[in-house]
Amino acid sequence: MATVTDYLNPKDLSHLANHQVLAKRVVEGFCSGLHRSPHKGFSVEFKQHRQYVPGDEIRHLDWKVYGKSDRFYIREYEEETNLRCNILLDASGSMAYEGTRTKGRSKLHYASRLGACLSYMILKQTDSVGLVTFDTKIRKVLPPRGRAAHVGNIIDVLEDTSPGGETDLGAVFHELVPKLKRRGLVVIISDCFGDLDSVMNGLAHFRHAKHDVVIFQIWDPDELDFPFKQWTRFDCLEMAEKKHTVDPTHLRQAYLENLENYRENFTKGCYRNRIDLVPMTTDQPYADALSYYLALRKRGGRPSRK
């Protein structure tokens, strides 16, 4: 039975204590006026006046302004709403990779701890968080809950998750979108390996459903600098029959070029879809990268395209 402290390091948590996961876009309130808001009696803070256009509800007219200026103005309010966050954890075979420099810390291991940390932080600010694990298909779904004790459930699921199966992010995302009924924050923790177009389609689907999407892309340092020297047989983690014996020194440059290309395309795609892409390497403490990202987000910025 996993304990909370296995997944949540007090040092990391204290590092992140002052950060709050704010959905950058107002998840529900932004659309008020287009759909009926289900949230009534919430604290309402005046934001601005807007000229009346036909079709606006009459009850929102500010009669006092009409009395003074003889014009119709609508009062607009900024609404606070509960953040509903879904953490999507990739548990495909490729996440099992652990390099020479990250012995005992596979990408999944790193991703689980990152997920647990995020859940804890979200629950701490009294928002609700849920967890979905997947590989080719969705494996397990834990719906968002706001109770503080929910972190225990999340950690239990993380504990039970072991890597395996192929990655098919596009299909999984398409399958997942209808299941997330309420708009909210979607945090994807994955290496995002797979066909780029399919992945981008899936992400676009999330965006279409007005979700705010953040991708924590997990890299092993070996995958970034390809440090192999001697003759090597590369056995695929996802498909056992794929094996290639090559001299890596001859391939390194081409591999790095290919990697760079892939990352650039991926970054561009994310940018186009207004998705935050946060690359993380398993040899860096996730708290650092997370804290940087959260600080950036609080200021209202986005991670740079690169």
Binding site: A96, Y97, F228, D235
Partner: peptide
Amino acid sequence: FKVVTWGAM
């Protein structure tokens, strides 16, 4: 040769 189980295939 060395055997590496590789993710980013």
